[in-house]
Design a binder for these strands. Structure first.
Lengths: 216, 216
DNA sequence: GACCTATTGACCACTCTGGTCAGAAAGAGT
DNA sequence: ACTCTTTCTGACCAGAGTGGTCAATAGGTC
């Protein structure tokens, strides 16, 4: 990432980064088109290569940047002293949402890199960072959680997976619904009803998977 | 679809169809490459265009064929007199699996067509078939199901969605795990443990979402 | 041999790719 | 007004890949 690029308006930087995140997340490294990234970002093709010397460099910068964002805006803000599973889940969802509002495709890009890591032959430095990140991500919903609140007639791991899958399924469906609405800009205003829906689902999950009598 | 093609060895037909299903399902119509389909199917490029006159005709034939398969091998075999939700789920999963073993990518292709239908401008005849199919697919897990078995302190629709999402999450994870193993051929033999795991999960879901005392 | 069908890959015109570069545009300093 | 520097651009390049064609084969049957 050029110093030139870092000296730009923050908003222009974000526009370019997001265009790139989206294209790479959607198509993968090889299929992604620098032409489309430039067009989507609203800059000339030459300008893109003025900021980033090559497609590969752009990609590596995105990897690094997305790791940094995940770290600074998400992982480091998680309150690991919260031992209640569902409050942890709520908290991390809110943090993720905050990231999403600024950089809608950064975390999706990162996930894509995680999954297809082996194809990319990243420089060693990034591979190291990635392994550290992978370890941390596994702990987000387990570290210091009081699992004794879970009902005992269902294996803990099964309950954990079921909750994960349910939330993920809801997330996918929500994404679909929102895409259908075709909004340009997602304000907190328009999404308020979805917060309620989501929190309602969390309560239901708690009722299902916690021991009876723990519903404060 | 040419008569020439239909006269081929069944196994050769399947090889070509599956290669095409996979490519289209993965990349969508425009991004799919006829070159890759031919190479993957192990036939010359000229041969592919000898069987199918154009990329578009190939695609339309696949749509038609996948609808036919879904109908004959799946939808029409569902026993709608089964009113128990979980037995219905088990039965339909087994049917889907049977289809998957012959045509691994046919149903995935069909799902892709469903989602991106509007971009494709299919001939009217296929649009009609598609609407009928969409209606039927919505009924698979609801038609003639005895929902009174579900516990009453959770909204029926919520319970239904949670189960759907859990199953779907498991399916995705299973797919991931199997891809990691990198098997060429999935025999019933190697997958036996997964049946048990799946049926175990179904029992757990029943315990969760049915009224207490209904676990025969 | 002749005849027919099945199969092929070199080839075509065309689009798109990542990347370059001469020069336009915009400031800044005088 | 003039110059110097930095920012920005799209026409342009060679190369790869596209859907589709077709003369040339190979193989079987009479």
């Amino acid at each position: 990432m050029d110093d030139v690029f870092k000296a730009l308006d923050k908003s222009k930087q974000l526009r370019i980064l997001n265009a790139a995140y989206q294209e790479f997340a959607e198509k993968g490294y090889k299929q992604a088109s620098t032409n489309k990234i430039a067009r989507e970002a609203g800059i000339g093709k030459g300008t893109l290569f003025y900021y980033f010397t090559s497609k590969e460099e752009l990609f590596h910068d995105l990897v690094e940047e997305s790791f940094r964002i995940a770290d600074e805006q998400y992982l480091s803000k998680i309150d690991f002293s919260e031992t209640d599973f569902f409050r942890r889940l709520k908290q991390t969802s809110e943090l993720k949402w905050a990231v999403y509002q600024e950089q809608p495709h950064a975390l999706r890009f990162m996930a894509q890199v995680f999954i297809h890591m082996e194809e990319y032959e990243l420089p060693e430095e990034l591979t190291v960072k990635r392994q550290a990140a992978e370890e941390t991500w596994g702990k987000i919903l387990t570290e210091n959680i009081d699992f004794s609140k879970f009902r005992e007639d269902i294996p803990q791991e099964t309950a954990f997976n079921f909750i994960r899958w349910t939330i993920e399924g809801y997330r996918v469906e929500l994404e679909q619904r929102i895409k259908m609405m075709g909004l340009d800009k997602l304000s907190n205003q328009t999404l308020e009803p979805y917060y309620d829906e989501f929190y309602g689902y969390l309560d239901t999950l708690k009722k299902i998977y916690y021991k009876p009598g723990l519903n404060e």
